[in-house]
Design a binder for these strands. Structure first.
Lengths: 141, 141
DNA sequence: ATGGTTGCAAAGGCTTTGCAAACAT
DNA sequence: ATGTTTGCAAAGCCTTTGCAACCAT
């Protein structure tokens, strides 16, 4: 299923509308291949007369519809990434240069889910961030 | 080794001083058993004439000296916890009631470290947050 | 016509910072 | 005496919100 369909469904179920502006934001989010914050997203669409306020008002809908996820690198600003069509993954971040790489590991993922359930939780999601120093930075010493 | 010693060493190496106010903050941090944000820490020490500004100025030293860690629940404010003397652990958070439980799993931890190294990173730290619904919330439906 | 949506500018919340007084060595 | 530290208030940054105009159905 297409991300547009999902978003329209999401909106309609709540009596909300797919407007020109929301479409622009949606497309921008799925065009970007990297992580972004509200301001970076704004930069992508400001030339189409989209305001910052609407960015901030739209982002929660995208998150709520599970198309986008808050990707907590928790440094300062909120960071987002589109996740629809992408398997759950985690981030390894270089604390020197800030480079972020993504990784998938089903083994770790299974352990995480099992552990949540053993702790009496109904598993929903996980966020894993690993910090380290990347090979480039380590060689440039 | 005592956390006070560590902090004093940290400060001295940088030409900084252990003042009355910094002591108060340090003790408050290690008296609290839960996670806290800057404002909650301020509430613990404000009656001893410690200002918010100094809280914000001291927290980075505590983090830098590895006594305290930013514990990204990344909801809005920065959250901290003292980690000296505690093994690395992760958090399972109930998305309904906000309850946070801590867990340790050496198996997952080893996998994480191995994975970072296989990706060419010198491993430093990890942050794992699992979201779910706790048994209490699931039974109250 | 009705009710959702938008941009703007103002307000809000958390954090940082300039400054002069106070402090530690 | 010297350089660090503090509280205060102001400023800063990111995000949210009230409002009147606008748009979709």
């Amino acid at each position: 299923m297409d991300y547009r369909t999902i978003f329209i469904d999401y909106l309609q179920k709540r009596g909300l509308r797919l407007t020109r502006v929301r479409s622009i934001i949606l497309e921008a989010v799925f065009t970007t291949h990297s992580h972004f914050d509200a301001d970076e997203l704004y930069d992508l669409v400001r030339h189409k007369d989209v305001s910052r306020a609407t960015i901030y008002r739209t982002l929660p809908f995208l998150v709520d519809s599970k198309l986008v996820k808050k990707s907590m690198f928790g440094l300062n600003k909120e960071k987002y990434e589109h996740i629809y069509g992408h398997p759950n993954h985690f981030h390894i971040i270089c604390t020197k240069c800030g480079r972020v790489i993504e990784q998938i590991d089903k083994g770790i993922e299974c352990s995480i889910i099992r552990l949540a359930e053993n702790s009496g939780f109904e598993y929903k999601d996980y966020n894993l961030r690993i910090s380290g120093i990347c090979s480039l930075c380590n060689n440039n010493e």
